[in-house]
Write a protein that binds this DNA or RNA. Sequence first.
DNA 1: AGACCAGGTCTTGATTGTAGACCATCGAAA
DNA 2: TTTCGATGGTCTACAATCAAGACCTGGTCT
Lengths: 144, 144
Amino acid sequence: MTRLRADNPQGARQALAERFRAWSGSEFDLSRCPVRGVLDRLGDKWTTLIVIALSQRPHRFSEVCRAVPDISKRMLTQTLRDLERDGLIARRVFPTKPPTVEYRLTELGESLLEPLVTLIAWAEGSQTRIAAARSAFDAASAAA
Amino acid sequence: MTRLRADNPQGARQALAERFRAWSGSEFDLSRCPVRGVLDRLGDKWTTLIVIALSQRPHRFSEVCRAVPDISKRMLTQTLRDLERDGLIARRVFPTKPPTVEYRLTELGESLLEPLVTLIAWAEGSQTRIAAARSAFDAASAAA
DNA sequence: AGACCAGGTCTTGATTGTAGACCATCGAAA
DNA sequence: TTTCGATGGTCTACAATCAAGACCTGGTCT
């Protein structure tokens, strides 16, 4: 199987063509689509911020709470659980008097940092163009 | 400003550290975080599949409908609009007898393919490990 | 006329995300 | 000794979002 490559735009298109054919073959089983699962997780508003925070060093529960502003404890707990379930972070409990719980990225979690940085780089490089497109679109919509 | 680099795991961590400090500086304005906007869009279940479909060639509305299984017309319309608003795809109407509408990636949309392929490659390479982690986690949860 | 297609919009539930209150334990302070 | 705050959560209720399917506006074919 050919490896996915993203050396250049053409390569990206061809790599996608290949994946696309593979997925469309037979009958596109959604459960076999790994992108869906990953993007669902990454897209859920807090995951990325938590991963970024943990990429710096292990955090305790309340450290993450402070590092990620506006997140509720409810959502923090749930997001950490999901991340732990997927093997991206590890949870360790120390039996201190006020219990200490530490969360850290696993090796798998660290391997996610590279694609994530690629995406962040794109986002930062494209944000002005996206903002411009939005303004133009909204202006055109308002006119009509 | 230093460019984000992802040549290696250390680089990824350092690049994130840099971004993280930049964002945390002053008071972390969420609207200034471009990643959030991008991931919200990518994470919304259909966007990625549509972008992948359009990466192969321009599609008509009903072609996309057939290419992306199980999407309702409602969601397809909405997702295409959002994508168009962000300047990632372009919509062109041809005044044929039954009107023909074509959707294609813009240059900006094509530039998204590279980070997307990077992410897909990670997802494909990691899916077995993620599945294993999930099984282990669920087994441990069931035991408790 | 009746049936069909394109390219949508609208209405109406079901699913999911989120906030904020609440809980149990411990140590320190008053 | 009562109260306070911190830690690491859970529970409940509400709101936004998703999705299905009916409906609409042309136009063409038969």
